[in-house]
Simulated assay, not measured.
Amino acid sequence: MTFIAALLSSTQFAMAGIRPGAVWPDNRGIHINAHGGGVLRCGDTFYWFGEHKADTTSSAMVGVTCYSSKDLEHWTYRGVALKVSYAKGSDIERGCILERPKVIYNKKTGKYVMWFHLELKGQGYAAARYGVAVADKPEGPYTFLRSGRVNPGIWPVNLANPDTTALTEAMNRKPELQWWTPEWMEYIKQGMLTWRDYDGGQMARDQTVYVDDDGKAYHIYSSEENLTLQIAELTDDYTAHTGRYVRVAPGGQNEAPAIFKHNGTYWMITSGCTGWAPNKARMFKASSIFGPWEQLPTPCVGPDADKTFGGQSTYVLQLGDNFVFMADIWRPEHPSDARYIWLPITFADGVPVVKWTDEWDITSLLKNR
C-alpha cells in the first residue's frame, strides 16, 4: 500500500467548512492532489488547478490536475488537465519539474491559458523557464505551446540604461567578488544578473499570472537566482510576453508570489527562499502594477505566523469584495501528503490581515462574489 493510500484508509473524510492543514477529500474520498495551484471561476463553477505530487518524488510524473466545485468545499476530480509527455527530450517529459500552474481565461480568443514554472528533466533547477499551454475548456485537455526564458534582449522598464561595462567587470571578478557581500549585493541591485541573462532571457521560477480590471494580463515570477521578482506584461492572447517588464525588490530574495487588488491598490504576498521549509511571509503594495512597490510587514497573525502557519503562499482567490489566501504546507518526504491552507483575508486600516483559524465557513463569502 502506498503512503497516501494508507493515510486515506485511516482518515474519516467529512469536509466541514474549510479546515486549513487537514486532509481534504475529493468526490472519491481521495486527498486533493493539486499543489502550488490556483482557482479559476467560470460562471458558478470554480476550477482548481495544481501540481500532481507522487508519493516519493516532487518531479512531475503525471502533470497538472483539475478539480471543480460549486461551493469551494466539495471538489470533483476532473482529471489531468495537462499531461506530461513520454517523448524523450520533450520540454515536459515525464520526470521534469512542473510547478505552480495557474489558468486564466482570454475573452478575446475564448481560450483558457495555463502558465507554469518548468525545469527540464535531469537539469535540476538550472533551466528556470516558464511554460504555457492552452485549452478550449477549463478542465482541458491543455495543449503545450512552448517553454523558455522571459524577454531575451530586452531591459526592464525600471532598469533602462544600466552601466553594462561596470556590470561586466563585476561578473568577471569572480571569485574575489564574493556572494552576499555588500559590494556584491549592490551590483545585484544595479542589474548584474539581469545583464548576465540579457541575451538568453530572464530566469522564471515560482510564478503566478494576474488579469487586471482592464483585461491586461501579467506574469509575476521569481528571477535572477530567486533574488528579484519580475512582473512582465502578456500579449493580448495571454500566451507570450510583450517585452514590457519591471524588477521588484532587487536582491530581496522573494518567491511564491500571490497578487490581488483591493480598492485600487495592488497587494502581493510572497515568501523568503528557504527551500521546502516555511518562513515568514512578506507583503508588498503598489498603486500601479509596474510599481514602485513598497514592502510591509507580514500579513499573518496567530500561531506560527512567523512561519506563515507552516505554509507558503501560492494564490489569492477573489470572491467579490472578499479574498482568500491560499498556501501549501509542503511535505517533501511524502509529497502527495502536502496540505492546504486557505484563510480569509480581512483588512485593518486598509491593510490585509491573514489570521489563523482552525475551521471556517466560506459560504458567507460566496454570497458576495
Rank of each mutant, 00 (worst) to 15 (best):
G43Q: 10
N161G: 01
A240F: 08
L296H: 12
L227Y: 06
F347N: 06
T165G: 08
L234H: 04
Q312I: 05
M192A: 09
K189Q: 13
G310K: 14
P138I: 02
A277L: 13
M326W: 09
P250G: 05
N226R: 13
A160E: 11
T164F: 02
T143G: 11
V39D: 02
T274I: 13
Y238E: 05
L98D: 03
D163L: 07
K307R: 15
R331P: 05
E73H: 07
Y67H: 13
P156A: 09
L193R: 04
H262G: 07
R41T: 12
Q190M: 13
M268V: 02
T346W: 04
Y86A: 10
A54D: 13
M268Y: 00
G252R: 02
I259Q: 06
H35A: 12
D26E: 14
P141D: 13
G89T: 10
G272Q: 03
T165C: 04
L120Y: 07
Y67C: 07
E93I: 12
A81K: 11
A170W: 00
V113K: 02
S313C: 02
S58G: 14
G95I: 11
L120N: 00
T181W: 06
K70F: 08
D358S: 15
A133I: 03
Y130Q: 03
R244Y: 05
F144S: 00
V80D: 12
A256W: 08
Q295I: 02
T194D: 03
H74W: 02
H241V: 00
M268A: 03
K102G: 01
P303E: 04
Q207P: 01
E93Y: 09
G95L: 08
N151V: 09
G251K: 01
E233R: 11
K121W: 04
N368I: 00
L167P: 03
R173G: 07
A34C: 10
S10Y: 00
M114Q: 07
Y112A: 03
S364L: 14
P292K: 10
G140Q: 06
L145Y: 09
E93V: 14
